[in-house]
């Protein structure tokens, strides 16, 4: 395809972005007719809902965080000494007795950091909270933009370290779900609705974690010659399949973790009792 090339116009303070000199003179900042704002609003609503709920639970949920044999995923592992006694659970008072705030605040930093630096959530909040961009081909309101080139956003590059931490965290939640195969007195071989809730939640957490872009890179994406690493290539292919669903898994696991916590909360506050299957 042919074109002419002209020297770049000197930047002019009268117009920026789509109104820069030399570009087609169109007054509107965008000409989209569809409801381009809808995904942005829905994303913001979903994220705010979760932020509000989890903040309330993390600060004030300690006494409703355990309903034998189930522990809320927000409170596991417990690294402070002020947790309710969890029979067989991840109750390690590494922080000792001086920590008097909610123990959830210590451990939630890791999943929070994991999700905050996640490539999908970055897209979600850059678009919905920061309008950068609000939607495709809709002009953003900011005069300057440096993206992830400098502090603080350059720190998004540490995502993979949160991924490394996310694996043991998911492991502990798996153990919590296994502990759910007991009755409230601690005898094995039982199951209730709560067991199912925890199992579904931990499966979604694993699927979300395994579908991470950093995971995809580490298992095989960094290689140049797949043909020389057949096992890693196979693993990369699996992770790539999951990775294509990363957005859906991000939302599904976000809701499931909230629902699992809500379920424990309802049991612990005596709203109803856990239906037992056997």
């Amino acid at each position: 395809m042919t074109t002419e090339t002209r020297p770049p116009e000197a930047a002019d303070s009268t117009g920026r972005g789509v109104h820069s000199p030399g570009r087609a003179a169109i007054a509107q900042r965008h000409l989209r007719l569809d409801r381009w704002w809808l995904p942005q609003v829905m994303t913001a609503a979903g994220l705010l809902l979760f932020i509000g709920y989890s903040t309330w639970r993390a600060f004030f949920g300690l006494h409703t965080s355990y309903a034998a044999p189930y522990v809320s995923p927000f409170y596991s592992p417990c690294l402070a000494a002020n947790c309710p006694k969890m029979d067989g659970g991840a109750d390690w008072a590494l922080f000792g007795g001086w920590w008097s705030l909610s123990p959830a605040l210590i451990v939630l930093i890791f999943p929070l950091g994991f999700r905050l630096t996640c490539y999908y959530y970055r897209k979600a909040y850059y678009r919905s909270f920061w309008s950068s961009p609000p939607a495709c081909a809709v002009a953003e309101p900011h005069a300057k933009y440096s993206g992830e080139t400098r502090f603080p956003l350059i720190l998004q590059n540490i995502h993979r370290y949160f991924f490394y931490v996310a694996i043991p965290v998911a492991g502990i939640l798996t153990w919590d779900a296994i502990l759910g195969f007991r009755d409230p007195q601690g005898h094995w071989g039982h199951m209730g609705l709560g067991t199912l809730v925890l199992l579904v939640n931990v499966s979604l957490i694993w699927a979300y974690t395994a579908s991470c872009h950093s995971c995809r890179h580490i298992v095989g994406g960094r290689l140049r010659h797949f043909s020389k690493h057949p096992v890693r290539y196979r693993m990369w292919t699996w992770v790539s399949k999951l990775n294509a669903r990363h957005m859906q898994l991000a939302w599904a696991s976000l809701f499931s973790v909230g629902l699992a916590d809500l379920y424990v909360y309802l049991l612990a506050s005596g709203a109803f009792s856990d239906p037992r299957f056997f």
């Binding site: 490539y119 897209k123 850059y126 678009r127 950068s132 495709c136 081909a137 440096s146």
Partner: peptide, 14 residues
């Protein structure tokens, strides 16, 4: 300029 991209996926969309 790879760091300028904030992975908001408009390129993929179009």
């Amino acid at each position: 300029g790879l760091g300028y991209c904030n992975i908001t996926k408009c390129c993929t969309e179009v």
